[in-house]
């Protein structure tokens, strides 16, 4: 599906589920999301991580509302803790098979957001792996100068921020040197399709979720 549509769908579903309590809908969305992830052949390791990491949050919420609340409410506890999975799994569906570049292009082409915003988002995403390498290198560079930097060392963060600022400045200059002018029209070489089929899927899913929200408790 189109990256922007996927994103908007996940956003609306998450928002609606936050406002209206329906445990059944939560479970349906979770099952559908899991099926989608499996169909698109997610790696088992990734799937386990996706389930295991939010479990801490979900469990905490459940424990608070069920065991430690003066008025324990099983339905409410289940409802809130499954929401955590609705959020994480729908977002996982959005990022599944969609690269950051596709997403940025879609924001620009389909949603007509300013290209500055689209590529800003992209730059922010692209900088993450670079920062990971940078942090590793900073620690090595420090050890080579007889300094041990722990993960809470101010020097490590100071230097990381410097690297990030420096990259941001270079990136702006780099974009401009490759012909980018803020606010100027750009052509489309790699088009991100937004077909009727995608709209159909979008509305079908949205209506189904809404029906479920209002029928089931």
């Amino acid at each position: 599906m189109n990256p922007s549509l996927k994103f908007i769908l996940a956003f609306i579903i998450s928002l609606e589920i936050s406002l209206k309590a329906s445990l059944t809908t939560n479970l349906i969305v979770i099952v559908f999301a899991l099926i989608y992830l499996l169909i698109t052949r997610i790696r088992i390791k990734e799937l386990i991580l996706l389930i295991a990491v939010p479990f801490i949050a979900a469990f905490t919420i459940f424990a608070t509302l069920f065991w430690f609340s003066p008025t324990p409410d099983a339905y409410y506890a289940w409802n809130l803790s499954t929401r955590v999975y609705v959020y994480t799994l729908t977002i996982a569906c959005v990022t599944r098979n969609t690269t950051a570049t596709d997403f940025a292009r879609s924001l620009e082409q389909n949603l007509h957001l300013p290209s500055k915003f689209a590529y800003g988002v992209l730059a922010a995403i692209n900088i993450i792996p670079r920062m990971k390498i940078a942090v590793k290198q900073i620690r090595a560079a420090a050890m080579m100068r007889g300094m041990y930097l722990s993960f809470w060392s101010p020097v490590l963060y100071f230097k990381s921020i410097l690297v990030a600022l420096n990259s941001a400045d270079n990136l702006a200059q780099g974009m401009e040197s490759h012909g980018y002018v803020e606010g100027q029209k750009r052509s489309t070489i790699v088009a991100i399709p937004l077909t009727k089929k995608y709209w159909l899927i979008f509305f079908t899913l949205l209506i189904l979720v809404n029906i479920s929200l209002f029928i089931f408790k």
């Binding site: 490759h178 012909g179 980018y180 002018v181 100027q184 029209k185 750009r186 052509s187 489309t188 070489i189 088009a191």
Partner: peptide, 10 residues
């Protein structure tokens, strides 16, 4: 990216 900036056609 650079070609799109220069408004080169697909």
């Amino acid at each position: 990216f650079a070609l799109e900036n220069l408004q080169i056609k697909a």
